[in-house]
Amino acid sequence: MKIFVGIDDTDSIDQGATGESANQLIKLIEERRWGICQGLTRHQLLLHPAIPYTSHNSSMCFTADLEDANLHSLIEEAGKFLEQNSAPGSDPGLCVAIEEHLKRAEELIAYGYETKCRVMTKAEAYGLARKLGVHLSEHGGAGIGVIGALAGVGLRMTKNDGRFQGKLKLKRPGAAMSVAEIKNSSPVETVQSLAGRILRDDEELRLGKKLKTVLLNGKRTLLVYRPEGELGWKTCTNAHLEDY
């Protein structure tokens, strides 16, 4: 079965990062041979004074293929992991959704988008999770991480939200590579311009300093742009990717 795992609010200003917690959780799942995990994505939620986020209000989500028999163990161990490893003062939440059991994914997707523009409550998150049959649990503090954990799963399901965690290791900054070369030597599935044009395999681009990918149309996408006054493509900077 394919599952979506969302976590949020495992850090404090002095300690931890939700991305790191998610990576450790992935390691735990794979070490125990419960399943194989795929790309970890970061999803930006609303920045609002009424929301007690640590510093950026983002949540993390990854998918996994696992045997049905391992689901219960995964949920139990993931909860314990969050309780034991989250930063003191944090409010961790865990969401696990089984793709084939989810009849109304569009409601979860709508919830995800809503967390980008409205202050949500824990009661709303639990209400929706119950209605859709999605696992949602809190593991410390005030437990408000359930809001972001559920939203992270909804936003990942849009196939059009979030940046993948980590950066690509290709050639040195300034080096030229063809799209085909990049696709063959990294997890990149498509190379696309900011305006939405998909580059052909034989097109070339220049690498920037930091190579990040985003989730677009369900694919791990490397975004490029044409610097002013230049004809060739270059990979996007952090500033370009701020809105993904």
Binding site: L47, S55, R163
Partner: peptide
Amino acid sequence: LDYEDEIVAEEARSCYNCRFRRWTA
């Protein structure tokens, strides 16, 4: 310096990349 996923400025040493900045709208 904050964790890699939260780095936004090209210059590493920038308030935008600092662990102690809290984003607002």
